[in-house]
């Protein structure tokens, strides 16, 4: 299994470098890459990670429970469409949680792992698996609880903030310069037509990265020379809730996605 994964990754990188020249629309290009990879390797890296996530989901923790004992928002063990309704407020923790955070809660509170025992790669793999059960579902995020409304407001403010030595901010590029290019890719219309919330979690073939939206947001900050927020922190969650709510009603084409 492991050696097969590496072989697939190798093929992916070869394809990526061979086809890197003259790429038009990045989304069309990603589709083409995906087809080629499927033809040559017979399986996609996303599928391998989903399989790994499923194994971890059904693994028993120190408490003897699998993740099927956890509620991801639609009831114990119900995964169909659950990820499309996150982030949301959970009564049992009294917190708003996204997919990553809820998996962490499940592993620590229900499965009995110590927080220090939870590996990030495992959380991401399980996120890939649970997200795969929302393909074809509509994003339905609500602002019902005061905690949800507060985080949304913070996310909106963070999105429009100018900060740091480079005066950067999300909206300054992803609203004002949509479609313009700084570097390789044009800026996505993350609040509008590009429905960027539905693009993550994803396998990013150009850099061989297995990322959730948490990783993507951190990379956004990092790329523009701004300090990055810690994983599982409130500012990440706030930005996620804001973006997800803005993309409400968008259909998840495929989770996990396959992107450039």
């Amino acid at each position: 299994m492991r050696s097969k994964a590496w072989w697939v990754v190798g093929v992916a990188l070869l394809l990526a470098s061979a086809l890197a020249q003259g790429s038009p629309d990045p989304r069309e290009e990603a589709k083409r890459q995906k087809e080629l990879l499927l033809q040559t390797a017979g399986i996609l890296p996303t599928e391998l990670v989903v399989q790994q996530g499923e194994e971890l989901f059904n693994r028993k923790g120190p408490s003897g429970k699998t993740m099927a004992e956890c509620d991801f928002g639609l009831g114990k063990g119900v995964l169909e469409g659950a990820a499309a309704r996150l982030p949301r407020y959970f009564l049992d923790t009294g917190r708003v949680e996204d997919l990553d955070g809820r998996i962490l809660t499940c592993m620590t509170r229900v499965q009995g792992f110590k927080p220090s025992e939870v590996r990030r790669s495992e959380v991401v793999a399980v996120a890939f698996y649970i997200a795969s059960k929302s393909t074809g579902h509509k994003i339905q995020v609500r602002l019902l609880f005061p905690q949800e409304r507060e985080l949304y407001a913070l996310g909106e403010k963070l999105f429009y903030a100018r900060s740091g030595p480079r005066d950067v901010g999300c909206a300054t590029c992803h609203v004002t310069y949509v479609g313009k290019r700084a570097g390789v890719l044009p800026y996505a219309d993350v609040l509008g037509k590009d429905k960027s919330w539905t693009h993550w979690p994803a396998y990013r073939y150009s850099n061989d990265q297995i990322w959730t939206m948490q990783d993507r947001i951190r990379a956004c900050y990092g790329n523009i020379g701004h300090p990055q927020p810690a994983l599982y922190s409130l500012p990440i969650l706030a930005l996620e809730l804001f973006m997800a709510y803005q993309n409400n009603g968008a259909v998840v084409e495929e989770w996990p996605a396959f992107v450039r």
Binding site: L151, L154, P227, Q228, P229, A230, S233, L234, P235
Partner: peptide, 10 residues
């Protein structure tokens, strides 16, 4: 206060 959960440098 919420932003502080992102870590000190952030």
């Amino acid at each position: 206060e919420a932003i502080k959960t992102g870590g000190k440098t952030y």
